[in-house]
Design a binder for these strands. Structure first.
Lengths: 231, 231
DNA sequence: CGCGGCTTTGATGTTCATCAAGTAAAGTGG
DNA sequence: CCACTTTACTTGATGAACATCAAAGCCGCG
């Protein structure tokens, strides 16, 4: 059930990232005429691995996950994108098809801009080109950094990582509602579902966090950071 | 011992990547005047994590490794760049300092182009901008893909991966001289040095490869590919 | 020639995935 | 709305995968 609405004028868009700041009114009008805002309910597929890339995807609100489906049907989550993130990563330049599947993990609004319009703007507006690549590079860079961070740590450090990540970078609060299942956490940080639960329980017993289903509160952030640092 | 020479005219450079194909003679001349070719002996440092990024780095010949030094002084290799690769990854846009250190693992020639020149070309030559980002995106994309590939496999699959990687993508031969130590292999694919050796010995006993120090020959590529596929 | 780093093999212990089994929660169809 | 099914969550027990430790040979280099 995917709603397709064209609500906002790009010019007034409060979600407009700083990568789009150096555009003239005419250029914004152009984007506006070639963009769609789509609403995706939690759990809905945004795009599938292998789909041709026709739009540049920008997350206005909500959360989405990027993942690959392995041969054994297991999913492997590459990253979770938050509002203002460009989703779809670098595929828009390096590939004609999406390398990862994307699914909404919270009700989300995705802004789809015709890729040709973006490419034309890059060609004609040099300042925009630089801004744009700066932003897109940061997203890709942080994906690489995260993958390395996770893979050089062991289980407790990895759980500490996602708890801190959700708390600091996504919800800005020590108390939040985990948007993904234990299984998805496992797929995101390369561990088994059982061990995700085990480590979370451990942290609860140690009074580092409080858990009630998906409601999580970080009680002792200092210790959590220490666990993360030590790996 | 770092030699700084300005040998080639960019226009005649046989290492010129297709990202630089859509440049006018004047533009090439501009690059030429603001570039240096530096020779790095095997083992020499190209740049250190934290150095300010002033040049765009392009590998003409040789091999270099990108790596991070962990707090416990252990190195963690992110990727190995081969000729025609842009090294330094996306940091040129996303950061003012290098995120990774770079060291030559074979005698190498690196072409350093003043970053401002590149950024100006992006601003003024739209077609170049697109070409350039296409290429740079591919490099970054493949780094992400590789990290995921490695981390979803276990030891035998990881060793199979680097053997196939060096054979297919770097040396184009079933017989090659491993440019890095066992320890560095371990740092590249997240395993202990001892287990790198153990798995290599195993493969030798199984007649999959032949080893004499750093000289490696792949005898049974089909089985190696199978081991890689199975993880 | 001796020292330090690289390589190799075996033994040991830790970390972690997997299996099993049970409970709770959340859909689903009548 | 309730019985039914499925999916998510949780805990314990087991074994496999892997890192670490230890010891010895090897090679390059000052």
């Amino acid at each position: 059930m995917e709603l397709s609405v064209k609500v906002n004028d790009c010019k007034e868009c409060i979600y407009r990232s700083w990568a789009f700041k150096n555009l003239s009114d005419d250029e914004l009008k152009l984007i506006n005429s070639r963009k769609k805002e789509k609403f995706f309910r939690k759990g809905e597929l945004v795009c599938l691995e292998g789909d041709t890339v026709t739009s540049f995807l920008y997350l206005q609100t909500g959360l989405v996950k990027l993942y690959k489906t392995e041969s054994n049907n297991r999913e492997h989550i590459i990253s979770i994108a938050k509002p203002m993130d460009f989703i779809g990563l670098l595929s828009i330049f390096s590939n004609t098809v999406h390398v990862y599947s994307i699914t909404a993990i919270e009700d989300s609004i995705v802004c789809l801009v015709d890729l040709e319009v973006i490419k034309n703007l890059i060609k004609t507006n040099g300042v925009f080109a630089i801004d744009f690549f700066e932003k897109i590079s940061k997203v890709a860079d942080s994906v690489i950094k995260t993958r390395v961070d996770i893979n050089t740590r062991q289980l407790r450090g990895r759980i500490a990582y996602i708890l801190l990540h959700f708390s600091k970078h996504i919800y800005n609060s020590s108390k939040f509602n985990l948007p993904i299942s234990r299984k998805e956490v496992a797929e995101l940080i390369d561990m088994s579902t059982e061990n995700v639960i085990r480590v979370l329980s451990e942290f609860r017993k140690d009074k580092i966090i409080q858990i009630e289903g998906k409601n999580i509160e970080i009680l002792d952030i200092k210790r959590l950071e220490k666990i993360y640092d030590l790996g």
